[in-house]
């Protein structure tokens, strides 16, 4: 038993599908989370985020208007972000490796693949509580370290080089 005080958490759930939001909110409430904020799109999520400063954001990837990826990038890098370190759990049906890389590069901490299961939600919450990743700041990226291990990395910025080569 973890013995977490989930009742102390503030969680923002962002999904344009009301059924999926209700599913996630129901699970969180059963875990004991009391302060749950909902948003149906990325723009509204940004407003709610700034008003409530949640401890965790659970966001869908594919939404009309601002996508979950764009929201994550904004949370990490916007000057008015209330907390650039807030853990972001990306709710997604995308499981292709390229899409996983894309989300990692946007600064998300964990994936929650659809269909959603209770155990998967608990596992991701436990992971962001118990195993936070170090953060990285480079010229082209700010967010959780895309490697799982902390360390004093001294090598080249391979992702930046790859992105530059792809652009060329």
């Amino acid at each position: 038993m973890s013995g977490y005080r989930f009742d102390k958490l503030k969680i923002l759930v962002v999904d344009d599908n009301p059924h999926m939001r209700k599913l996630v909110v129901t699970i969180l409430q059963a875990f004991g989370v009391i302060q749950i904020f909902e948003a149906a799109d990325g723009e509204r999520a940004w407003t709610v985020l700034r008003e409530t400063n949640p401890d965790i954001v659970i966001a869908d990837w594919m939404m009309e208007g601002m996508s979950g990826l764009e929201l994550a990038q904004q949370i990490r890098s916007h000057p008015q972000t209330p907390n650039p370190f807030v853990p972001i759990i990306m709710l997604t049906g995308h499981t292709h490796i390229d899409q996983v890389r894309q989300a990692r590069d946007a600064g998300i901490n964990e994936f929650l693949a659809k269909p959603v299961s209770v155990k998967a939600v608990m596992t991701r919450l436990t992971s962001v509580i118990e195993n936070p990743r170090p953060y990285v700041r480079t010229k082209v990226y700010f967010g959780p370290c895309r490697r799982r291990r902390a360390g004093d990395y001294q090598g080249p910025e391979r992702r930046a080089e790859t992105a530059k080569q792809a652009a060329e």
């Binding site: 038993m1 973890s2 013995g3 005080r5 102390k8 608990m122 436990t126 509580i129």
Partner: peptide
């Protein structure tokens, strides 16, 4: 949130 005895799931 505290807790986390051994990192097990609740």
């Amino acid at each position: 949130v505290g807790g986390g005895t051994g990192g097990g799931l609740d």
